[in-house]
Design a protein around this nucleic acid. Structure first.
Lengths: 111, 111
DNA sequence: TTCTTTCATAATCAAATGGTTATGGAATGG
DNA sequence: CCATTCCATAACCATTTGATTATGAAAGAA
């Protein structure tokens, strides 16, 4: 009864880990999680890198389905995507459970 | 008293995400988790890549503190390291929690 | 309309990365 | 002693990647 199909999950797991493997991208994502939806302009001000780089980082996060996009006029707002971490959490649940129990309490596993 | 200072953790989290961002490395790690301690020779037979590549992948996993090494004669045995995933789990716990917290009220909105 | 703001894309570059083959050092076995 | 097995490192190559500046489209302001 879950909405996410297997192929989708398998395909995105690599993209997600790759997306999360860069510090700048994680910082951007963390900012979105903490502060909520943000424009590229706002993200640029915070990120310490150029605006084009922010655009490219966000594009990668979007491909990894970790953020959603909302365009309003000339602005583009990005937000952390609900359940975006599910594939990674899933992987952790399967392969990480042997190493650490703590995170099994995390929600979003839905399997 | 120096269990895990913040810099250490910050450095490790990046190394860990990077280590996990490669499919071959994840496969090797998954194999260790499922089958237990394995020699480089055995890992090479399973990995589909050359022996030197396995050595390099394992070195990276070791730097990320995701595996431990045990040398016995001319063989080198690697094993998934207990609590190795802790930093990543920590990150997931912190941001995953904020994540779901932020979105619990918005279920069903995403397209 | 004209100027300005916001953003994405293209061109470019240096560095990192994943892969290979070649090599050499230690153990093990004849 | 000599050959073999196991592993790590070096040398090398192609691709990816993080970053920059330059450019242009589109929306808003004047």
């Amino acid at each position: 009864m879950t909405k996410t199909n297997r192929e989708d999950r398998g395909a995105t797991i690599d993209a997600q880990f790759k997306a999360l493997s860069d510090g700048t991208r994680r910082a951007l994502l963390e900012h979105l999680v903490r502060e909520g939806e943000q424009s590229v302009h706002a993200l640029t001000a915070v990120s310490g890198v150029s605006q084009p780089m922010v655009s490219r980082h966000m594009a990668k996060l979007k491909r990894a389905e970790l953020v959603t996009v909302r365009r309003a006029g000339r602005e583009t707002f990005y937000a952390a995507r609900a359940k975006g971490l599910a594939p990674v959490v899933q992987w952790m649940a399967v392969y990480g459970a042997l190493w650490s129990q703590r995170f099994t309490a995390l929600e979003g596993i839905e399997a």
